[in-house]
Design a protein around this nucleic acid. Sequence first.
DNA 1: GATGAATGAGTGTTCATTCAT
DNA 2: CATGAATGAACACTCATTCAT
Lengths: 193, 193, 193, 193
Amino acid sequence: MPIMRTKDENKKEALFRATIKLVNEIGFASSSVSKIAKEANVSPSTLYVFFDNKEDLLVSTYVEIKTQLAHALLENFDDTLPIRDIIRNGWYSVFNYVSEHPDEAAYMEQFSNSPYSELVDKAVVEREFVPFGNVMVKGIEQKIIKDVDISILAAFIFNPLFRLANPRLCAELEMNEEKLEQAFGMAWDAIKL
Amino acid sequence: MPIMRTKDENKKEALFRATIKLVNEIGFASSSVSKIAKEANVSPSTLYVFFDNKEDLLVSTYVEIKTQLAHALLENFDDTLPIRDIIRNGWYSVFNYVSEHPDEAAYMEQFSNSPYSELVDKAVVEREFVPFGNVMVKGIEQKIIKDVDISILAAFIFNPLFRLANPRLCAELEMNEEKLEQAFGMAWDAIKL
Amino acid sequence: MPIMRTKDENKKEALFRATIKLVNEIGFASSSVSKIAKEANVSPSTLYVFFDNKEDLLVSTYVEIKTQLAHALLENFDDTLPIRDIIRNGWYSVFNYVSEHPDEAAYMEQFSNSPYSELVDKAVVEREFVPFGNVMVKGIEQKIIKDVDISILAAFIFNPLFRLANPRLCAELEMNEEKLEQAFGMAWDAIKL
Amino acid sequence: MPIMRTKDENKKEALFRATIKLVNEIGFASSSVSKIAKEANVSPSTLYVFFDNKEDLLVSTYVEIKTQLAHALLENFDDTLPIRDIIRNGWYSVFNYVSEHPDEAAYMEQFSNSPYSELVDKAVVEREFVPFGNVMVKGIEQKIIKDVDISILAAFIFNPLFRLANPRLCAELEMNEEKLEQAFGMAWDAIKL
DNA sequence: GATGAATGAGTGTTCATTCAT
DNA sequence: CATGAATGAACACTCATTCAT
């Protein structure tokens, strides 16, 4: 019975992955600590070396994903482009992230619609999205975008996107390049003046 | 003609209400059968008189809400109006339902983003929304609405709406008559040709 | 697999007995709920039908014993006898109880010296011993007993007794009729004026 | 000549203190090795440098206290005094020790009433109290003290004392110089011929 | 000598469900 | 129809202890 003393971070990441996978497959209710640990090839007690408790694991997993998403969004963020292009870039970045990480996206949706979401320090999460919000403010000032609350704008840009990219909600819908451009067009029509 | 409910139906309804309340407050994971039964002032074993098991209770609760929502949507459905007005009426009906039944709406969101949603017989649920779908088809034929998949259209009409009406997701946002009309305008801009 | 639906009280008593036995044999620290349940031939979950939690079980067991002891003490309590005889009767009653129920006595000692003892509603327990306390008050008034706090008197009457009757503390000591009378004589010498 | 303690001995003592404190506050059952180590500002694994296991720690702590108590008892032991005075000195020495070290005393009581006590090498512990026992033997020979087993004598001298000095058992009782002298008087009355 | 990482075994407790009544 | 008693299985979590460093 060899005792591996590998570096921690591998285990922590394995736990994130296991959490995402299991919560998507069987939901929060059935994703027990022991199942998650087994999926991550770790002893249940080892989980408590990295997280305070189950709640902490779930919330940390969410914050981890949200941060990744923010990075994806800002990766090709170019302030000098026309506003429509900035938003279009962001929209596609998010779509790509969600398409390439459907499990992470599904976890995010399930989490943010559950009471667990109230445990997240929202300031920390939202901070990452500020630059993108600023663009919308600028768009409003330049009379390019409708003068409504930022959260209403965001609801029209990102919410349909999440739904369309979510195979659980839109199993039958196969997105392709053309439909994608149509969808962004609709999002833009919704918010443009 | 007042409907005389038998004792049973009162209990069944009490169980629906208890389920909705508890799942919203503490989530699926913590909403145990015994807690739900206690909240409904019923013995846990009585629950099994009305439902096969916990899963059946959760799914039935969802279907019940979805059906109520469909009724609300179709209540003032008038085929003879212009297409924009039909959709506007539907949009407002849904918004009103969600505003007046925030718990039901939150349950719906939480349920439909969870793996439980795969247990629902979708045909049954979607049947109720067919008339509304037909209106959109007609709108496409009449070149009033963009020619894209119905589910994409629905995503732009209803998804932002649910988010805006959901206090968990938009706690800080106070919707009023003006913002509401703006929001519908945006939804319409998104789908109209 | 026959399902016995015997009357509850049997199980509750079996749990009391199992608790006393195990706590004496292996101590509070090792007396787990599952071990106690197994000793009582009951499922661990059944234990929670009768007691709120482990603490409640331990405290209830103590109160049960204390109540039995009080009954033993008062059984042949005769107010009309001379004060020395009343106290002597009580002293022998307690000694007999402790000799015949060494496990209960040992549990009592272990419990009352542990932090669990702070969870007991002392008013309830002490109420039962009031008549005996009154005799001592009368003895003080009649100048038969030293005028000191009742708890000091009680410490001299009952504490040595418990120690002498406790096989854990006095394993080597075999009490017989003569030593017993000597011991009571010492207790009486301590408190008499 | 100040005693230079090596680093180790400080840690060992810190572990003794932590054990006593925690066992008094939360009992044996809840005093885990890790809690004790944390209280002593030491790693749990360090504990195993000084003690074989948890049991060894608990027993060693008891023996340590018992030895301190014996030292206190013998500190002003003067063989040349009259027997009553020797015993009185011892009685007061013990009372003082218990008053000044209530935690140690409470630990001792809790320990000696638990099954752990069976793990102690009694010969080692009792050896320290031999001189005091000899005094009682001499008292018996000189017809000053009742001719009964030493352990019965000890039970009347020390048991009430421990109870009276134990705040857990006698919370309400405030001992003062007068009550103290009364209490010793009673102990003496119990054993004197 | 001292410790942080790790874990199998076990903790107290709650679970969904059954069954006799 | 409705329920109280009962439980095996599972829960989240902590335990005493080990071992490489």
